[in-house]
Amino acid sequence: MHHAWLIENLSNNRVRILTQETQIGIPAKALALEKPNPMLNGHQDWLDGLAKVVNN
């Protein structure tokens, strides 16, 4: 698996986070089939954590 992150400072105290990911290989394909999807949930947890820190 590979991840790319682009974090941009925007006007009005905003930030844009762009992500791209590849999942190649047997372990990555198996992980993508799990329900709930641990990769999607992990990304959402990361974003929720960022939002929590920023809003405190």
Rank of each mutant, 00 (worst) to 15 (best):
N41F: 14
A51Q: 15
N12P: 00
A51Y: 11
A32L: 08
E8M: 04
K29L: 12
T22K: 15
N56V: 11
Q44R: 15
I17F: 05
E34T: 12
W46G: 07
P36I: 05
V15F: 07
N55D: 12
I24Y: 07
A51H: 15
Q44L: 14
L18I: 14
T19Q: 11
L6Q: 02
H3A: 10
D45V: 09
H43E: 05
E8I: 02
N9I: 02
Q44C: 09
N13L: 13
H43K: 12
Q20F: 10
P36K: 06
L50M: 15
E34I: 14
H43T: 08
L10G: 01
L40R: 15
S11I: 01
A28F: 08
R16W: 01
D45Y: 09
Q44A: 14
L18W: 09
A51D: 09
I26S: 07
L50P: 00
G49L: 11
P38Y: 04
G25P: 03
I26R: 14
M1H: 04
E34P: 01
N37F: 05
E21N: 08
M1E: 03
L33H: 12
L6T: 08
K52M: 11
V15K: 06
N55T: 11
L6M: 02
V53C: 12
W46T: 13
L47F: 13
L40V: 15
N13K: 14
